[in-house]
Simulated assay, not measured.
Amino acid sequence: MPKYTAFKVAGYYLYFTMACTIECMHVHASDTKLTESGSAKLFVKPDGDTIVTRQGTVSESDMNKIRKYIKLNYITMFEMWSKYSMHGYYGENK
């Protein structure tokens, strides 16, 4: 399961599963098990902004930290995503 970082951001791993690659780029955030169950899900736009479609167990304060991290690092994160998926950012027609 690919992680976007080897470390936790605001106490959460940021990752995606191979099943995720059929959708546009998004990030799951989980503090324990790296599964979709209970995780937050954020779709990433071409400018690095995010749309939270599932909050999971992530507090609002931690979600803001995660969103800021993604905004600052979305290009590098997209490079990893692109190794596994032909789909682009949220809202792009590909």
Rank of each mutant, 00 (worst) to 15 (best):
F7D: 14
K94D: 15
G11T: 01
Y74L: 09
A29H: 02
Y69M: 05
M77I: 06
Y4T: 04
N93I: 12
L14A: 07
I22M: 09
Q55M: 14
K45S: 07
T50Q: 07
F7K: 15
Y15V: 03
V52T: 15
I75S: 11
T53Q: 08
S39H: 04
M25L: 13
G48C: 08
D62Q: 08
S37L: 10
I70A: 08
K41N: 01
L34P: 00
A40K: 03
E23N: 13
K68W: 05
K83V: 08
A19G: 12
F16H: 11
S85Q: 08
Q55L: 11
N64G: 08
H87K: 15
K33W: 02
Q55W: 13
L42F: 10
S39E: 02
G56P: 05
N64I: 09
T17Y: 04
G88T: 11
Y4E: 04
A10V: 04
A29S: 06
M77K: 06
T35Q: 01
K83M: 13
E36C: 08
G38K: 02
I70N: 06
T76K: 15
K71G: 05
K45V: 03
N64A: 12
F16Y: 13
E79G: 00
H87F: 15
K65F: 03
Y89M: 07
Y74A: 06
F16I: 05
I51S: 14
S85M: 08
T21N: 09
G88R: 11
K94H: 14
C20F: 06
